[in-house]
């Protein structure tokens, strides 16, 4: 795909995302893919801040700020209103962080997709509650430091597999995407747009501030998440048909962990254990995709 074809910008400069913000990059790519016939619903998340303080907005499309737990519900309502107006053209997108998706907004999301509401739900995942001060979420990966899992109390629980939870709802389309793979991301956004019903895209969006990484490394680390199998790129249609989009080079996970301050405390033994967990998840995915390891 020619990314150059997507020359139009639907964002303004001057937003207040941190330097190197992965969530800002994710938004930019998505809007390029979706175009201006889009309404965005924004439950509380980093982007509530990034979009600018009242009366500013950094997006060139309509955007509704909503309460933390209501992403799925508000989008359902916006869709219904558009339908009543006879507008079938506009795409409704919920743009939520991992907290608003995995934890606080999960009920509304699950309800909405169970009803197969016609909207795209994008979770940009930076693996903790970042704008409130880096508190752990159920998306925070095993081994990570956060302000609520400090010191030796680093998170010793697995990250919730949100895509599989959504796939279990048998929605028409669920996919993972990553800011370091813009062509794949744009293709998935456009594919989602072309499908009716509930669509879910889980986007890996690195966070230099919360992950304790240099801002210039945020794409590199995002790329490594895919290359190490920590965040595989795949898509699932109708909750059944799995396609793995990228066969990684099988880099060792320790390369990925070593670059990030939030994992600095991990010992070689911990990293070996994490490697095993990653391998296990990857094999599970291969089995689902019918590509037995």
């Amino acid at each position: 795909m020619e990314l150059n074809a997507l020359d139009q910008e639907f964002m303004h400069s001057g937003h207040v995302g941190c330097p190197g913000c992965g969530a800002a990059i994710a938004m930019r790519f998505f809007l390029k893919a979706l175009g201006d016939k889009t309404i965005m619903v924004l439950p509380a998340c980093c982007w509530s801040v990034i979009a600018g303080p009242y009366p500013q907005s950094t997006l060139k499309i309509p955007l509704i700020h909503s309460a933390f737990e209501t992403g799925g519900a508000v989008a359902s309502g916006v869709r219904a209103a558009l339908d009543m107006k006879g507008d079938r053209e506009t795409t409704v997108v919920t743009w939520a962080g991992d907290g608003g998706t995995f934890d606080i907004g999960f009920q509304a999301l699950s309800g909405a997709v169970e009803r197969n509401e016609d909207f795209i739900y994008v979770c940009y995942d930076n693996e903790a509650y970042m704008n409130t001060g880096i508190q752990r979420s159920s998306s925070t990966p095993y081994g990570a430091w956060t302000t609520t899992t400090p010191g030796t109390d680093w998170k010793k629980l697995r990250k919730k597999n949100i895509v599989e939870a959504l796939v279990a709802h048998r929605i028409p389309y669920a996919a993972t995407a990553n800011i370091a793979f813009p062509e794949d991301l744009v293709r998935k956004a456009q594919k989602a747009k072309s499908i009716k019903g509930s669509r879910f895209i889980h986007v890996y969006a690195s966070c230099p501030t919360g992950w304790r990484i240099p801002s210039e490394m945020s794409i590199k680390i995002a790329r490594m998440a895919v290359q190490t199998n920590i965040f595989p790129l795949y898509e699932v249609e109708d909750g059944l048909r799995y396609t793995i989009n990228y066969k990684p080079k099988e880099y060792l996970v320790r390369e990925y962990f070593r670059l990030q301050g939030r994992f600095r405390h991990l010992t070689d033994k911990d990293l070996d254990q994490i490697q095993e967990m990653v391998n296990e998840d990857w094999e599970l995915l291969l089995r689902k995709a019918g590509e037995h390891a």
Binding site: H12, G14, Q56
Partner: peptide
């Protein structure tokens, strides 16, 4: 409340 201006007033280059 509806926003009516862009964020371009924030010259974030100063960061």
């Amino acid at each position: 409340p509806r926003s009516y201006m862009s964020t371009e007033v924030n010259k974030t280059g100063s960061w």
